[in-house]
Design a protein around this nucleic acid. Structure first.
Lengths: 237, 237
DNA sequence: CAATGTGAAATGCTTCACAGCG
DNA sequence: CGCTGTGAAGCATTTCACATTG
């Protein structure tokens, strides 16, 4: 897993009214179900069985049913799930009804690509501001939006109601940026820099490290080549 | 978790000679330990305690010790771990001694950024070829390397000894690309397209979906705002 | 009667707590 | 004496298997 959660601050138990406290593993899969459901809806399906949705989302059906059961009982026995209703419910739980404003910090290679990535907007996120520490880049237009200097962060985060920050800076700048984001009021961070961030309780951090993903695959390559070098039984192919 | 493993083909038990079969969770953390160790080495440290390394890697020390114990006994009681030796061991286990050749498919926004990302090369990966299905893009130079057409994949994968493919295409092209990569002999895939890939047993897939990461954070934002709207106890801040 | 929702079993992972070693 | 390595306990997640229901 290449993610990192802030030390979870203990999710005030019991769950508030109407707020089921889902297992983290379930939360991480809901977006995948949601995507699969949108595909099914586009393909004209009105209902789908746990088996069908599970296949579309790449999990097994028992897991899917257990995940969905945490949201409540939205299936019909003998039939399956109503696609539209389930989309509605999952979006509700994920808090996707209100569009969330995102600040993107670090407009280098990756930052440019992220700023232009259409997948964010199409899934309910609005990149509301771009920041960089380099004054030479300030003012540059990326995807129609001007890059601003880090020193504006506090004001812009407040003005735009930004709650999520994306860090795409080099590793040595990331902690300072995280501190600035938190000071400005951001409470969730997606970190692409290859380093560990320290943040206060109550701030959530997820990490995506491209090189780590490759290293994990490297391990499996290494394992496979070691195993096939032996007379061990190879499954499949 | 935003990753997806191919249905694990059963990791021939017992582990071959000299090949410890590590828990997946441990494998996923080793690259993080490795990065922390390199930082420590650069900072001039010869040894490090489990406590120190755990802090640098953002985990707790018991977990770190258990993870490392799977590799064998490379620590010294009363002292800690030899930084250089441990780097050596982890790189060994991850199969990072041989530089691995990577094919990158889909030279759009994200593909450009990945092609230029220095973090791959610096951590033992060599982007050996770039591919795109769009003939208008074929021949374009990205980071000094010419983009080739998908139809060359089989030949190039064989020539360059490529074992890992990175898919940065739109979702609707990804499955075809995956099939082509697998047919060409690639046995590990890192998928940035927002879709589930079907691959044969023996092929490993990891998935990175940027929008899913944001949706997970959105859930936590939603939860936090729901909770703070109540008189519930908020930890920390 | 097909397919959900769910107790209960099985597995895997994390954390504790300390014996044992350098 | 400090720190590693590790059984054992504690949690979380997955899977099984079936009673239940529309």
């Amino acid at each position: 897993m290449s993610q990192q959660r802030a030390q979870s601050s203990g999710v005030a138990s019991g769950g508030g009214p109407g707020f089921p406290d889902l297992p983290e593993a379930t939360v991480a899969r809901l977006p995948e179900y949601l995507r699969a459901l949108h595909n099914l809806a586009d393909a004209g399906h009105d209902t789908v069985s746990s088996e069908g949705l599970a296949t579309a989302a790449g999990v097994n059906s028992a897991k899917l049913r257990k995940d969905l059961s945490h949201l409540g009982s939205y299936g019909t026995r003998g039939v399956g799930y109503d696609v539209t209703l389930l989309i509605e419910q999952i979006e509700q739980v994920l808090g996707l009804h209100e569009t969330r404003a995102v600040a993107l910090v670090g407009i280098g290679n990756l930052g440019h690509a992220l700023a232009r990535y259409a997948g964010f907007a199409s899934r309910g996120f609005h990149i509301a501001a771009l920041f960089d520490a380099d004054r030479d880049r300030v003012g540059e237009l990326v995807n129609g939006m001007a890059v601003r200097h880090m020193s504006d962060i506090a004001a812009v985060v407040a003005d735009e109601g930004i709650s999520i920050g994306v860090i795409a800076t080099p590793a040595d700048a990331a902690q300072v940026v995280a501190d600035d984001l938190v000071a400005a009021g951001v409470t969730s961070i997606l970190n692409f820099a290859p380093c560990v961030l320290a943040v206060p309780d109550g701030v959530d951090v997820r990490k995506v490290d491209l090189a780590i993903e490759l290293q994990i695959l490297s391990f499996h390559e290494h394992r496979k080549s070691t195993l096939t070098a032996l007379p061990a039984k190879v499954v499949g192919q």
